[in-house]
Design a protein around this nucleic acid. Structure first.
Lengths: 222, 222
DNA sequence: TAAATATTTTAAGTAACTCTTAAGAATTGG
DNA sequence: CCAATTCTTAAGAGTTACTTAAAATATTTA
C-alpha cells in the first residue's frame, strides 16, 4: 500500500514516514502543494495524507484538484485547525477524514486502516481453532465440514473472528453487525451467539466463543 | 473517567450509557437542562455530553452557565442540527466539539477520547510486577497467564494500578470504583481486595497490593 | 399472488454468575 | 493485652446470560 504525505514540516513527515514504513506501507513525501498534486495525480497512491497548510497550493486545493481525477482514493487531512466550519469545509472539498494535530500515531494508523479496508479486500480467510471462515464465498467449515449459517449468523461470526483475541463489546457488535446506532435494549446478540455455538457444535473443550460478562464476547484460540 | 449526559430521549441515553460503561466510563444521566446544569456544577465530571435540544434550559444555555464556573471540562454537543451557523453558535457558547445525530458510537467514542486525551495520558496497558492489565480488551495476565476477573474486581485492580505507587484511600476507592458519593460503612472493599489477592495468587513475596492500615491500599512494585 | 419456507426478532422462564452483607477469625498497633 | 482494623467465608439478593418457543419479517416456491 502506497501513501503520499504532503507536509512541509520535516519533524512531522519524518516521524510519519518512519512510523508508516514500520507498518510496511510505502511512503512518499511532497513538501509543498504543487509537488504534492503532481505526485498524487500520477495515480500511484492508495491514500493521501494532506497537511491543511502547506507552502504553494493549499492542502484543500490539492484535495479539490485531485478529486477531479480520482474520486475513490481516500484522503485524510492533518490539521492544526480545529474549528468546525473549517473542518466541514475540508470534508466538503472531498476529504474522507481529518485528524487534528497533535495526534497520536496509533490513531492516525487506525484511521488509515479504516480508509484502506474496503478496497484492499483484506484477507478473505479467517481461522479459529478448527473453524475456517471464508468471506469470499461465504462459507464456514468446521474440520473441513460445511456449516450452514444464515446471513446474520455469518456476519456475527465474521465480526468476532476478524477481532479474534480482542473483546467485542455488545455496543460495538450491535453497531457493526446490526447497524443499530441507538436504542439497544434487546437480547438478539444472546440469541445469535447461542445459535452460533449450537450450529458450530462447540463442545465443552472448544470454548472458542467466550462470554465476557457485562462487556460482550470474544473469539479466542485455546 | 466520569461523563455526564444531558439528553431526554431514553433510546439515546440508554444506548450511550451502556456503550460508555462498557468502555469503563462512569456515566450519569440528566433528562433536562436544569437538572443537567445542577449536576454538572457539582464538578464531578470529566466530560459533558449535551443534547442541543432538551426540555427546560437548552443545551446551549447549560453550556454557557457551566463555562462560567468550569473553563476546562470538555463539552461535546449531540445535535440533529447540522447547519454550520448553528454549530458555530454552539462552539461559541463554549463547546469543544459537536457530533451530528445519527452518529456512530465509535465516532463519538473517538471524539470523547480526543477530548480526554491531554488529561488522561490515555494508556490501555498497565504493569505491576508480573501482572499486566489491559483496559482495551479487559484482560489481566500474570506471568502471561490469563486471570479471570469480574467487572468489579477488574475495576478495582485498574484503579489501583492506574495509581500505582500512590495510596488509594478507601473513600476514594468507594467513589471511583463503586460510584458511591456519600458516607460508606461497608466492607465491600475488603472483600474485593481479598478476592483480588486470591485470584492473582499473590504469595508472601509478591505483596503488590499493600494494606495501608487506617487509610486504604496501594499497588506497589517491590 | 398466495402459500410455504426460512430468517430475524421478541419475549419469558431458567440457569449461572456477581455483588453485597454480615459475622466471626485473625492481625496489627498502641 | 486490648481495641481497632482488616481478613475470610458463606449465604442471600441482584444481575446478566442462556435457552426455548413463538411472533414478526423476509424470501422462495407453486
Amino acid at each position: 500500500m502506497r501513501i503520499l504525505i504532503v507536509e512541509d514540516e520535516p519533524g512531522i513527515f519524518n516521524f510519519l514516514q518512519q512510523g508508516l514504513e514500520e507498518e510496511s506501507f510505502s511512503v512518499d513525501i511532497a513538501e509543498n502543494g504543487n509537488a504534492g498534486l503532481q505526485l498524487a495525480l500520477s495515480g500511484d497512491y492508495d491514500l493521501l495524507l494532506l497537511d491543511w497548510m502547506v507552502p504553494g497550493m493549499s492542502g484543500i486545493e490539492v484535495c479539490r484538484q485531485f478529486r477531479k481525477e480520482f474520486s475513490d482514493t481516500p484522503i485524510i487531512f492533518l490539521t492544526a485547525k480545529d474549528t468546525v466550519d473549517e473542518t466541514i469545509f475540508g470534508l466538503q472539498s472531498g476529504a474522507n477524514d481529518y485528524i487534528k494535530k497533535p495526534f497520536h500515531f496509533e490513531e492516525l494508523l487506525e484511521r488509515i486502516k479504516v480508509q484502506l479496508r474496503p478496497k484492499s479486500g483484506e484477507h478473505s480467510l479467517f481461522n479459529l481453532g478448527n473453524i475456517t471462515l471464508n468471506t469470499e464465498n461465504h462459507q464456514v467449515l468446521k474440520n473441513g465440514k460445511e456449516i450452514n449459517l444464515t446471513q446474520k449468523e455469518f456476519a456475527l461470526l465474521e465480526f468476532l473472528m476478524r477481532n479474534k483475541g480482542a473483546v467485542c463489546r455488545r455496543t460495538r457488535i450491535i453497531e457493526r453487525v446490526w447497524d443499530i446506532h441507538f436504542e439497544y435494549n434487546t437480547g438478539v446478540i444472546d440469541v445469535y451467539i447461542n445459535a452460533l455455538r449450537k450450529k458450530l457444535q462447540l463442545k465443552a473443550d472448544e470454548n472458542y466463543i467466550q462470554t465476557i460478562r457485562g462487556i460482550g464476547y470474544m473469539a479466542k484460540e485455546l
